[in-house]
Simulated scan of single mutants.
Amino acid sequence: MLRRILSIFLFCLLLTPVLVQAETVPAGVADRALWFSKEPFFEGESITIYTLLFNSSGNQLSGTLTLYDGTTTISAKTFSVMGGGASSVVAFPWRVTSGSHVFTAAITSKEFLTTTLSQTSDTVSTPKSGEVKRFADLDTDIDGLGNKIDSDDDNDGLADLEEKKTGTNPLVSDTDGDGIIDKLDPHPLVKEVTKKILEPETALAAEPATLPTAVTDKLPEPVLNTAIPVIGAIESYRLKQETAGEASLQKTIGELALLRATSSVAYANPAKPTGWEVFKEGALSEQVIRTPFQYVKLLFQILWQSILGNTYIFYLLLLFFVYNIVRFIWGIFF
């Protein structure tokens, strides 16, 4: 009877993975090895956080890795890393929230398996990564600068400090929602039905009461309520494109790097030469032959800025464009 019990015990022992004496082995999470798919990152963006696992033991390491933000769990992933110095990158998707963050990655469950599938109770040398701290700001105007360091959060051309003094919203480019950005709006806190269409120095008064009654009385209500806001939106677009185009033009001028003491062109303002002056200098110095693409780009930017900067030319070209589209459509159907 005793012999039979001993045989059954030995048989069960053979079917059970052998537990090897526990020891601490060089494996775990690489210290401070946390990095991000994008930096800086801002509130509302979707990024990926990566960390690195290593295993310098002779056995396979498997388990669960958890990513924390302070004491909050972001996500948990299962992993398996072969022995002999192997490593594995684990990725955690994360939607950014604003504020300060302290990231750590920790092995929350693990097991070592030998080549004979025997389980050991070894412990890893670094079960947890070091802390990696980051601050996620809000980037209202999506210009790559967080609001804390951006002097113009809504990119309307008015500094935040100036907007606080005038009472406009530094996080909204068009505070009154009338289609004109705050910097170009003569009454940024008043939503007006009629907005000025011409350049500021030659514009009609923005308030409806100042417009000639002989004109407003003859305009039907649909025109006042629909056409004028549409024109205002077009004008807002023109002004925004003019501002953006000027910044792009100045960037191209800077890339050409033609502001040198040996210049053969006398700039009216050496600190800020015009596009035509830079183009002329390039032609005279044969720079246009060395970098033709840059000068073609500069020429188109100059012409585009000339159109945007002249209200009359812009609207004449717009009318011409619309007229030809109407003619084309008319010719198809009639």
Results as ranks from 00 to 15, higher is better:
Ile49Glu: 07
Leu256Gly: 00
Ser236Ala: 14
Gln21Cys: 09
Lys148Asn: 14
Gln241Leu: 14
Leu298Gln: 11
Ile329Glu: 06
Thr120Cys: 15
Ile47Gly: 08
Arg32Asp: 10
Ala33His: 09
Ser100Leu: 14
Phe11Asp: 05
Ile49Trp: 05
Leu189Thr: 03
Leu52Arg: 13
Val230Thr: 13
Gly254Asn: 13
Gln301Met: 08
Leu211Val: 13
Glu221Lys: 09
Asp178His: 01
Phe9Gly: 04
Ala27Ile: 09
Lys195Asn: 08
Glu207Ser: 14
Phe41Gln: 10
Leu14Ser: 13
Pro170Trp: 00
Gly167Trp: 00
Asp143Tyr: 09
Thr104Tyr: 04
Val90Pro: 10
Phe314Met: 10
Phe135Ile: 15
Leu10Phe: 11
Asp31His: 10
Thr66Gly: 06
Gly232Cys: 04
Asp178Trp: 05
Glu207Phe: 12
Ser248Asp: 10
Phe11Pro: 00
Ile302Thr: 10
Ser7Pro: 01
Ala268Leu: 02
Ile74Lys: 04
Pro273Asp: 06
Ile253His: 00
Glu43Ser: 11
Phe36Gln: 06
Phe135Trp: 08
Ala206Gln: 14
Phe279Tyr: 14
Gly157Met: 00
Ile47Arg: 04
Phe320Asp: 06
Lys240Leu: 14
Glu207His: 14
Val102His: 03
Leu224Pro: 03
Ala86Asn: 14
Phe54Met: 08
Asn324Gln: 09
Gln119Ser: 09
Tyr237Leu: 15
Pro93Asp: 05
Phe135Thr: 15
Phe112Leu: 12
Leu298Ser: 07
